[in-house]
Design a protein around this nucleic acid. Structure first.
Length: 522
DNA sequence: ATGTGC
């Protein structure tokens, strides 16, 4: 373990620019009071450092670079922050690391929610045995049918085949206000009972009412940034780019009694075909998030408010202020869009399967976010839990699961890994209280996009997928999204399991992948 | 992540 070359504890120095990291520059924070307890590590309080909980094996801790750790410390020291969790998939992000949890009873932090408000995972299970997708021709037809309905790529909206679900301005306004309400689901051809399979199927305004959201939306619609609101609504049912994807899977339930029992509660069947989706709030969420960043940064400048650690990405608003209220309303509007976007994608994917395999049925297993702030009870008092690339993980018996299908099991946790090693469905264990009921959100990047393009070989990436018989809509798989650009998924999961946060219920093994190929041919 | 650099 090498000593960091800079002092990541400083709360005055601005963070270094992320672009200057060199290959092999893999420092590990070795600051005061760092201890390892089993496989979990804590940065203990010192005179200057409040505690940060780090969940990761020794190998995983080697993946945390200087900037990531500095962002964690900066976030921990920011006003009103009472808890900061670093998960094994952590890497540097906007303000706080992707793969962190920030808790505050008094402040809201837009950066530690993230640029893509309510970026989430969803899993659709089909009543199909695995061998139904053995035939490569069938898989090619499925890829085509899905891509005709749910496009990938920036700026892309609905395809003509989905025009029966056209979103006019009135419906657009309704869905960002109501989320997956019964009326919205009916209008878009989404099974209304899927709302019960959502972590949250709708989001209300800052005061707990929909009226507050409605007033905020009218204000926003009068601004220049929102002149293309109707166009943004046309993106409903699309994936976008970057790390977003759709993936056809085969479910492999874990070979133990607990996994079998929980899988049954989840409705997961061993050997069934399923479809995993990763996307968020697209252009609409982006306008809201980036608008809030700029707005708050301007206020900090104008009023001369000191930035946490000098980092503009860590601007915040005290709860109860107009700024906090407006942010919470905008987050809810973006979150409602993301919710309906995911459910519509699942409805369109099911429709695509039915086009290729007539009569097939499908149901949503779960929809859960990893980029959202939720008001939860932490240490016996209400607080905003900001999960930035982190997934809620509430075990059996948790009070907030009362009345849901998962009260006695814990809810499904959907974790994308990579097409080669698979993805995972997990369930929280009682130990998750130590991480503010959170786990990782996936594997986490280990190579930056530029770095990946420089060091990874295109034909190796494509050959590896081919040798695993995994098809894709991409002629060449985006190299900055290759499995090797991400951390070792098994080591990440081992960190979570050995720390007592969650247990594995099932693996999802990829049969074909749908990604944004528009930048793959550079 | 993104009306993907403005």
């Amino acid at each position: 373990m090498s000593t960091s070359s800079s002092n990541p504890v400083s709360n005055t120095a601005p963070p270094k620019a992320p672009a200057r990291r060199q290959s092999g520059d893999r420092h590990v924070y070795n600051g005061p009071g760092m201890i390892a307890t089993g496989e979990a590590t804590a940065l203990l309080p010192t005179e200057t450092t409040p505690p940060i909980k780090v969940f990761g094996t020794a190998a995983i801790r080697e993946t945390f670079d200087d900037l990531c750790l500095q962002q964690a410390v900066n976030s921990r020291l920011a006003p009103g922050v009472t808890d900061l969790i670093l998960n094994p998939d952590a890497h540097c992000g906007y303000g706080a690391p992707v793969g962190s949890v920030l808790v505050s009873p008094t402040h809201i932090y837009p950066g530690p929610v993230g640029v893509d408000i309510k970026c989430s995972m969803s899993l659709l299970q089909l009543d199909l045995p695995a061998d139904a997708v053995d035939d490569r021709k069938v898989r090619r037809e499925l890829i085509s049918a899905i891509c005709r309905r749910t496009p990938t790529g920036a700026g892309k909206g609905q395809r003509s085949v989905a025009q029966s679900r056209h979103v006019n301005r009135t419906l657009g306004k309704q869905l960002v206000l109501e989320g997956a309400s019964k009326d919205v689901c009916m209008a878009l051809g989404i099974p209304p009972n899927w709302a019960f399979r959502c972590e949250d199927s709708f989001h209300v305004g800052h005061d707990g009412t929909a009226t507050a959201l409605e007033a905020r939306l009218e204000t926003l619609l009068a601004t220049r940034e929102m002149t293309n609101f109707s166009e943004k609504m046309q993106q409903l049912g699309s994936y976008g780019g970057g790390n977003h994807f759709g993936e056809c899977e085969v479910v492999e339930v874990g070979d133990n009694e607990r996994a079998r029992s929980v899988a049954e509660t989840f409705g997961l069947h061993d050997g069934n075909v399923a479809f995993l989706s990763h996307c968020g709030s697209r252009g609409f969420g982006h306008i809201l998030a980036s608008g809030q960043f700029k707005h708050l940064q301007t206020k900090f400048d104008r009023w001369g408010i000191p930035l946490p650690a000098g980092d503009r990405q860590l601007v915040y608003a005290p709860l109860g202020s107009d700024e906090a209220n407006n942010y919470l309303d905008d987050m809810s509007l973006g979150a409602n869009f993301a919710t309906v976007n995911h459910l519509l994608i699942n409805a369109l994917v099911l429709e695509a399967f039915q086009e290729v395999i007539p009569g097939v049925k499908g149901d949503l297993v779960y929809f859960i976010s990893h980029n959202i702030a939720r008001r939860e009870i932490v240490n016996d008092r209400p607080a905003w839990v900001h999960r930035k690339g982190a997934t809620r993980a509430m075990p059996a018996g948790h009070h907030s699961l009362e009345g849901t299908p998962f009260a006695n099991s814990g809810h499904p946790i959907l974790l994308p890994g990579n097409p080669r090693d698979g993805s995972a469905v997990m369930v929280a264990d009682p130990g998750a209280e130590a991480s503010c009921f959170s786990v990782n959100h996936g594997a986490g990047r280990v190579l930056g996009r530029r770095h990946a393009k420089r060091v990874l070989d295109q034909s190796t990436v494509d050959t590896e997928l081919e040798s695993n018989d995994i098809l894709s809509n991409c002629r060449r798989y985006p190299i900055d999204e290759a499995p090797a650009a991400y951390k070792d998924f098994n080591e990440v999961l081992h960190s979570v399991k050995s720390a007592g946060l969650a247990s594995e219920v099932a693996r999802l093994k990829a049969r074909f992948v749908i990604k944004d190929a528009s930048k793959a041919d550079d």
